[in-house]
Design a protein around this nucleic acid. Structure first.
Lengths: 219, 219
DNA sequence: AATTATTTTTAGATAAATCTAAATAAATAA
DNA sequence: TTATTTATTTAGATTTATCTAAAAATAATT
């Protein structure tokens, strides 16, 4: 089934809204898509005919199995492109969303799969959200960027933002790897560097760039 | 000025057609865009109002200065994405056109410029067509793929399809570089390899993969 | 429970990009 | 030069995704 860009945007919005709440209401969707409730009703009818969602007038909607599959594919593309923009093109992780909103609509299965390989099959996007694989499966835990963790928190490293040799060299030197447990000691505003402590050893300093390349989970 | 995708496709088609011929006719455009002449007339009027082209009923069109600028930007994006697909994602040079047709419409100046840097500011796309820089300037000579050159032709190497270490190693070994003058001696259908002669030295054999990575100009 | 407020849907309109069929202009051939 | 063919434009219709305004359904409040 080939969806228009507008249809894809509705499917994606419903997907994200139904994660939090149960059924998604017309008004919620209108707000999320910056459109009017009347327009939403029209589109919901259209997507119902395409059996992408289950819609009862006045009752809100949920995605069908097929709709969820479509949504996961769009989310996959969005997050892979975000990873590409940050890891390869040196975008800041806070400025990639808009561009990925456009790139996610490019339709070519081959492109997505080759991009995935090129990036080294990343499991999380630059915001720490999991990237679905080509079957729509994804890791369920939420990753955080080390730079966003509050002082005194103890976390476990569970991912890195890139597979570059340079990053891996630095991580080996600092004795940090997947599974490393560390505590945030202090954060410096001047250069956004972070002081951490691994186990009971000495405090070490992590640069902004490195902190942004490290994904951690709360333990 | 922000153009729709349809408008961009018209501007690009006119740009390519007016290179060859002088004024571009309604029927030519309809054929090139797989649409009907009546639709073309409508769009030409719209683009005239936006002063992207000079249109006199029944006389065909030419792009205005502004239209040409827009066209060069679209062509730039198209060719940079083609280069990316071949050089980074391992697409064949014959299968990138369609995907690039979609990628070229993503609007973000920053994206294009960063992509350009990431790719090493390539001067030619995988088909040997020149890539305009961000000011719309491009090299005027036409490059050919070595694999497309006829037997007995003498050519000069003027570009390579990628900057990979592997390619450069092979080229050094075979003593081929930018500026190397060579003659096509023979072509083998079985593996599409090419026999060449550099200066007056012995004949050497070039694999299909290598021939496709070499751009040459006629001298 | 009745009234009021909110949410959602319907009805009808608009803009963009396309189409078909008919009319008109330009080019070609007898 | 007139007739015929071809190219182009106009007129009116269609589809998609929007909108506004009004009606209908649901939820909240007195």
């Amino acid at each position: 089934m080939n969806l228009t860009i507008a249809e894809e945007n509705y499917i994606k919005a419903i997907f994200h809204l139904q994660q939090a709440e149960g059924n998604v209401s017309t008004n919620q969707l209108a707000a999320s898509l910056h459109t009017k409730p009347a327009s939403v009703t029209d589109m919901l009818k259209k997507l119902t005919i395409k059996s992408l969602l289950n819609y009862e007038p006045y009752q809100g909607v949920r995605l069908s199995k097929d709709g969820k599959k479509q949504a996961l594919n769009i989310v996959r593309k969005h997050r892979l492109w975000e990873f590409f923009l940050v890891d390869k093109l040196q975008f800041g992780w806070d400025e990639v969303h808009e561009v990925a909103e456009e790139l996610e609509h490019v339709r070519s299965k081959k492109l997505v799969d080759k991009l995935d390989s090129f990036l080294g099959h990343p499991k999380f996007d630059p915001h720490g959200d999991p990237i679905p694989d080509s079957n729509g499966n994804m890791v369920t835990i939420r990753q955080f960027n080390l730079i966003d963790i509050k002082i005194s928190t103890i976390v476990e490293v569970c991912g890195v933002g890139s597979q570059s040799a340079e990053l891996l060299e630095l991580l080996r030197h600092k004795n940090i790897g997947i599974g490393t447990v560390l505590k945030i000691i202090r954060k410096f505003d001047f250069d956004h560097s972070v002081e951490i402590q691994i186990k009971n050893s000495d405090h070490i300093n992590i640069s902004q760039q490195l902190a942004q390349a490290l994904f951690v989970k709360l333990i």
